[in-house]
Amino acid sequence: MSSLPRRIFKETQKLITEPPPGISATPHEDNLRHFKVIITGPATSPYENGIFNLELFLPDNYPMVPPKVRFLTKIYHPNIDRLGRICLDILKDKWSPALQIRTVLLSIQALLSSPNPDDPLANDVAEHWKKDENGAIAKAREWTQTHAK
């Protein structure tokens, strides 16, 4: 679709000039559909002060199909698996072309603040979370300190 790059261009421009708090997204120089993303762990979450690296890719059909996002930094979270894949409805069936990179990243940030062990991607982590929430939170904090520097 010839008209789409304009949207990507505009979205990118806005992400750089007015970045959402705690989020940065920069396209690779050789591929403008490929973004290096950094999310700062939200305050009052076990991920506080962590620096999380993610990669975001806009498929050819974007925005008709959702962007592909994954964590590069190891993270202990019931909705994020060992490969960094994220369980988030708007990245799957609830996607709407009206959503943007910005809204996706804000949603991921929100997911860090409120993990949802009832809709898990990483089953063992979710089990841990449900059986022993304090223990799980402690482990998430520990991982943040070790990996998200």
Binding site: M1, S3, L4, R6, R7, K10, P63, P97, A98
Partner: peptide, 12 residues
């Protein structure tokens, strides 16, 4: 019909 409109998806 002649009014300008920015499509909220492609931003064209």
């Amino acid at each position: 019909a002649d009014d300008d409109y920015e499509c909220p998806l492609c931003l064209d």
